[in-house]
Write a protein that binds this DNA or RNA. Sequence first.
RNA 1: UGCCCCUUGGUGUAACUGGCAACACGCCUCACUCUGGAUGAGGAGAGUCCAGGUUCGAGCCCUGGAGGGGCAACCA
Length: 784
Amino acid sequence: MPEETRTRDFIRQIVAEDLRAGKHEEVVTRFPPEPNGFLHIGHAKSILLNFGIAEEFGGRCNLRFDDTNPVTEDVRYVDAIVEDVRWLVGGIGAGPLFASDYFERMYALAEFLIREGQAYVDSQSEREIRENRGTVMEPGRLSRFAERAPEESLELFRRMRAGEFPDGAHVLRARIDMASKNMLLRDPLLYRIRHAHHHRTGEEWCIYPMYDFAHTVEDAIEGITHSLCTLEFDVNRPLYDWVAERWVEHVRSEGGEPTRPRQIEFARLQLEYTVMSKRKLLTLVSEGRVAGWDDPRMPTLAGLRRRGVTPQAIRTFSEMIGVTKANTRIDVGKLEYAIRDDLNQRAPRLMGVMDPLKVVITNYAEGESETFEAPVWPHDVPKEGSRPLPFTGTLWIDRDDFREDPPEGFHRLVPGGEVRLRYAYVIRCDEVVRGDDGEVTELRCSYLPETRGGANPEGRRVKGTIHWVSATHALPLEMRLYDRLFSESDPEAEGADFREGLNPESLVVVPEALVEPAVAALDPGLHVQLERVGYFFTDPVDSRPMRPVLNRTVTLRDTWAAREDAAGGGAPPSREEKRQAREREKERERERGGGARQEPERLPELQKRREVYEREMQLEPHEAEVLTRDAASADLFEAGVRAGATPQLLANWIVHELPRELGERDVTTLPFGGPEMAELAALIEDGTVSSTGGRQVLGEMVKGGGRPEEIVERLDLRQVSDQDALEKLVADALAANPGKVEEYRSGRTGLLGFFVGQVMRASGGSANPQVVKEMLDERLGAPR
RNA sequence: UGCCCCUUGGUGUAACUGGCAACACGCCUCACUCUGGAUGAGGAGAGUCCAGGUUCGAGCCCUGGAGGGGCAACCA
């Protein structure tokens, strides 16, 4: 049950509904990258969505390369993308598939369109085509070749394929509507000539299909049921549908039975402090601003993988952010949370210091040493394992763990203070040694033998535990501390070149960090947590035997550092500040004034009717306005009035209630007319049905027609206002929710609506809500 | 300036399709702790973009407006 009712994103809701309605035998999705760059975490969202839906609903998902533009594409990207997808989701089912395998079938559809007069070869220059397309404000102009006979177009198109023309000489265009408000529908290009080498088809083709044409056909060929893409393609959807329709005609003309894919758009992922466009990422790579596509600072899957981020972490993250149509930039903190959440269970714990400060234990015998057997998993991770941890009289600790002048609440090492060394002893700082420049060079401490191995003798309370390594055993190795690639949360903000926002400290190399021996023995490609420092990944490329290079995947959550940061930053806006901001906003709005709004043009005939409604029927202006936007609504209204309905009531129902029941449908398709509408209005007016019941009646009427009176009887919606009759329902509602009754009485009066709703539901919509409300009011008593 | 999409705590999402504004991240307490980690228990934080309207009842329906995003490649 909880599995069933778990709320799903809008796309999964659509898929579930389609399956329930029997629209498809099986759901088929696809992930269609163009092989012109590496995949990034934004693609991961899409991959996980598409493969996830296929898996959850028992369907399939194709990895298909949209390789229709030979000049930007390359096999090396194909290989990298396949590797990335495999890494993220495991198997990739059938495939990989290639759009280029469908070129012949696309071509066949193109010829079909030409023969049917739905496409033509245009021989305008590229510039002419652009100029004649018009602008968002002005319609385009027909090409002087638009009326070219199908036979002529067909011949030219074949010659285009045969390679008789140079690039740009001709294009194939769909014949749709040069005046469309949607620019994409102004006779969009379907094919262009490109004498270029294609990574799979070689020189076989010199004409290549354009996205809208090719992509739709690819989906149709593969039997894709739900074609998921990002928001900016919503303007392409009408064209997608156009091509899909023609594909259906084409296949049917050859006796086949095609499938009809449906495009659904969702918001692409944007992440704070990074960019997510292949073009910009390519710029960073080609200009050498990062070490390559797999630089661990890159949001690419290859980069994240090399940084130590796991597929599971990306999956968790993806589930956290959901799928919607709202355009937002996600807080990187959420990604970091998902990474830590996964690595916490996965990374063994070892110790290492990034910025070493020497500690000499003065009361520990010179040359002496001992070895602790220290666990590599914390008590709350159910895994076994330990490593030998050598201890001597000279140690390294992190400089950050010592403060001469500690801020309030600091509980690490301070002069004269005590701190616990993880898995070893408590030490006390007796003396601070400085170099010539005044910098602290060494701490002279004494250890407390009775605190060995974490023992905690009576009465001793040491607040802090710090990490350390034995100086004689410490091994130096390179650590790469990665931070956000950009300094600004939105590097793509208006104006400014995005490259200028690069964070100069996105990579800090520590050439000689000091780690305990067990770290040095780590193989490449392993996760580890250096306690209190962060999660690291042994670099799979640059690590050497016994000399791994450590990439910092992410720091540990650090509430102490957060507190220190917050001390500097401004306070969050108070309630009062927010109220004032709101006031200012309202003021500004008032100043802008209610600009004279432009009403849509109206036929004089409708304008006249509108005036009549207002003047003679006393309708509210805005209702009269809405009723006269189209003749059908006005007709319905007038027919209702002629049948005796009260104008205002009828107008309310047509304007405010009908649209909901109508959904996508048009008023003209209604299976009933004014008289029925009037009858419904009368039933409501005389109290035979409540407005709640009235809505149900209207819903029935829209669905199947029929007379209101009859529907009221059939659905038993006659309004019940008699208190005695309602008594039981009211009492039941109260008895079933004793907790809520209590809450109500202690002041949560918003619950009244809940109780009314319960009774209304129980009555099937027939109860008189006002009477119910009064009864509940009385039963519940005044809130204290 | 035309058309399309979007707007719910600081952030990301949910709300049985008109009836309790919920969850997660972040933040703050406390507990536990040999990681200022993890875990557990609490808490603060939202006039659901604004203004009108319909309704017993609106985050959800209607009207108008504001703000953000997209669309005028022979790219995808």
